[in-house]
């Protein structure tokens, strides 16, 4: 499948420091890519270079096969971008603001599209209020509506839910889900890792200007935490032959303590692995009352990642 986003040795140096060093990332079409990293890691600079708003010191960035230094208007119309900071033109209402961008992106039936999207994020009541008077959360949602207005093929979202209240997060998540379901490619840069975890197919983690890791979440988990554990509550735990589970080749050991069965897996506790364990317990007469997998969250992975981990992952 063609890459929707591709960078080759992308580097950006400022006078006294290197913000982005040799970043080569790939985002396939129809993929959701989580772009993570602490503040100052170089994520926003990378995004700006992708968009052609910063000139790379070295390397090239392609969006939809178009290089950032010579991007045609037609390609720009296929991009939707939500920036880190939401800013609006003086004295424009939300509707006027969206109308301006709708015309810029040559959107058909602008008013209809504006009404539909505003309704989706529950901003219909504020359509004719001045955008600069909005709360931060409302501005964030309005920014997202602007990014989605022209139904872009590729979405680049920088912190899309950072300023939202829980209800707003749900609204935006639902909106994004529905858009993603329509075959869009998305790059999400965020600090709200649970959000990325729920959405992203693959993750790229940046630190100190370098792309440290780029893989699926499961692979990253596996690399960082070789073992996963499934905690099972059985109806009659003492009568169950725990050793029988060792026949499964991905089970390393089992442990029964305080009436709870712990099954240690090599690798991640994928849905398939959980199904196999469940089936094996049933076959040996066990009755599962409760079962849940214990594995490293993205947040834990992100926090615990070390230089050694990176080397291991890179290997």
């Amino acid at each position: 499948m063609a890459d929707a986003i591709r960078t080759d040795s992308l580097t950006k140096s400022f006078a006294d420091f290197e913000a982005v060093i040799d970043v080569s990332l790939r985002v396939e079409a129809n993929e959701i890519y989580g772009f993570l990293g602490p503040n100052g890691a170089g994520k926003t600079t990378t995004i700006m270079m992708l968009l052609g708003l910063e000139r790379p010191t070295r390397g090239v960035a392609y969006l939809l096969d178009s290089p950032s230094h010579a991007r045609e208007f037609a390609v720009r119309r296929r991009l939707g971008v939500l920036g880190e900071r939401q800013v609006f033109f003086d004295d424009m209402t939300a509707r006027e603001y969206l109308r301006f961008f709708g015309r810029l992106y040559s959107v058909d039936r602008i008013e209809h599209r504006i009404d539909a999207l505003l309704e989706r994020v529950n901003l219909t009541h504020a359509a004719d209020a001045r955008a600069r008077d909005f709360s931060r959360g409302m501005q964030q949602k309005l920014g997202l509506v602007r990014a989605l207005l022209h139904d872009p093929e590729l979405l680049i979202l920088d912190e899309p839910v950072s300023a939202l209240d829980p209800r707003g997060v749900v609204e935006v998540r639902e909106l994004l889900h529905s858009e993603l379901g329509r075959g869009k490619t998305v790059l999400i840069s965020s600090h709200v890792l649970t959000e990325v975890e729920q959405l992203a197919d693959r993750i790229g983690i940046m630190n100190k200007g370098r792309l440290m890791v780029e893989d699926t979440l499961d692979n990253i988990r596996q690399a960082l935490q070789p073992e996963a554990r499934i905690q099972i509550e059985l109806a009659e735990p003492d009568r169950f032959p725990t050793a029988a589970l060792l026949d499964l080749d991905f089970v390393s050991r089992t442990e029964l303590r305080d009436g709870r069965l712990s099954v240690h897996l090599m690798g991640v506790a994928s849905p398939a692995a959980r199904a196999d364990v469940s089936r094996a317990i049933s076959q040996h007469g066990g009755v599962i009352v409760n079962m849940h997998a214990e594995q490293m969250t993205l947040e834990q992975a992100f926090v615990t990642i070390t230089d050694e981990d990176v080397e291991r992952l890179a290997a």
Binding site: T93, D128, A129, F134, S135
Partner: peptide
């Protein structure tokens, strides 16, 4: 006059 005024808690 044509501007919609937002409730204070939404500004």
């Amino acid at each position: 006059r044509r501007f919609v005024r937002l409730p204070r808690d939404q500004e």
